[in-house]
């Protein structure tokens, strides 16, 4: 048996993250088949959203005849205006992904501190006030809230306090704000569970400022909240598509998955099956992927995986 002695200097230089990664891989093992499928779907969607637009033709330009079926020239065929459907779907996917990611990020950035502070001061007027306000926002379903505001401000860019908000920014803002109560609740519930842990008291006794104590709590609150957030990306993508479908989202000619589906609905009966089916499939699979992976993440955290 050959034994390799690793000099101390080198083993000491092995970054902690690598050993953590290795131990994580060891613990997690192979993902469940459904989770693996979810990961595959997400990778596919991400490639479609981020890589395909680099190679695809201009999604707004007419590059073929109207309603060409899939071919080597147009892998997903063309739409009713002769535009490459793959390019349009990819561009729509990119927008959906961006809106999904940023709206959830915005919701989390606003909601987590709010929920944590409310929980940390559970029972106080502050907790009461925060929760009442959030309940009010939550009373309006995500979608209705967004539709209401877009109905008021129009589908173009709006300017608020001298800042011009593009339509996609508006969609991100609206979805993010409407997610806020849900995220704040999760953060609050997690924090409530966490503040009963002895380390919170111990850190207070150690004289750590409240900010630092909350910071320590955050590292435990965040993983389940992030897993939830991951699931909500699916909801955000769906909501963005639905807004686009209702022509209340980002406006044409910018392609959106919802807009493509709305237009394609008119061509279902004229044998242009690819027009609605392929982009619809992309949307459904993306949403499914986020759900599968989000569920798996949640399960893992529920099982108390601490790494």
């Amino acid at each position: 048996m050959t034994s390799v002695t690793v000099p101390d200097r080198i083993s000491g230089a092995t970054p902690a993250w690598r050993s953590r990664l290795r131990s994580w891989a060891r613990k997690t093992g192979r993902p469940a088949p459904l989770t693996a499928a979810g990961i595959a779907l997400l990778v596919g969607f991400t490639v479609l959203a981020l890589v395909v637009p680099l190679f695809a033709p201009d999604p707004r330009a007419t590059t073929g005849l109207p309603l060409e079926s899939p071919s080597a020239g147009h892998f997903m065929g063309t739409d009713h205006l002769g535009r490459d459907l793959l390019a349009r779907t990819a561009a729509g996917a990119r927008l959906s992904l961006a809106v999904g990611f940023f709206s959830v990020l915005l919701g989390l950035v606003l909601a987590v501190p709010l929920g944590m502070v409310a929980a940390y001061r559970a029972g106080s007027w502050l907790d009461d006030a925060v929760m009442r306000v959030l309940e009010t926002v939550q009373a309006l379903p995500v979608f209705v809230f967004a539709m209401f505001v877009i109905g008021l401000t129009g589908t173009g860019s709006s300017s608020v306090a001298g800042i011009t908000l593009s339509m996609s920014t508006k969609v991100v803002l609206l979805l993010g704000i409407s997610f806020l109560p849900y995220f704040a609740r999760v953060a609050r519930a997690q924090t409530l569970a966490e503040v009963h842990e002895d380390y919170v008291g111990a850190l207070r006794v150690l004289g750590l400022p409240r900010r630092r104590v909350l910071g320590e709590v955050l590292v435990n609150v965040l993983p389940p909240v992030l897993a939830q957030g991951f699931l909500w990306i699916a909801i955000a993508i769906f909501a963005e598509s639905a807004l686009g479908f209702l022509a209340l989202g980002v406006q044409p000619p910018t392609p959106t998955l919802g807009g493509i589906l709305a237009d394609s609905g008119n061509y279902v009966l004229v044998d242009a099956w690819w027009y609605s089916v392929l982009p619809g499939l992309v949307l459904v699979l993306a949403v499914t992927g986020f759900n599968l992976v989000g569920d798996a993440l949640n399960d893992r955290i529920d099982r108390g995986g601490s790494q």
């Binding site: 002895d198 380390y199 008291g201 111990a202 006794v205 150690l206 004289g207 590292v219 435990n220 601490s306």
Partner: peptide, 19 residues
Amino acid sequence: RRSVQIVSQNPWSALNRRR
């Protein structure tokens, strides 16, 4: 603040499990 410290019953709870 520092002069009085506490050690509690359950050390798993007393330490941040992610640190």
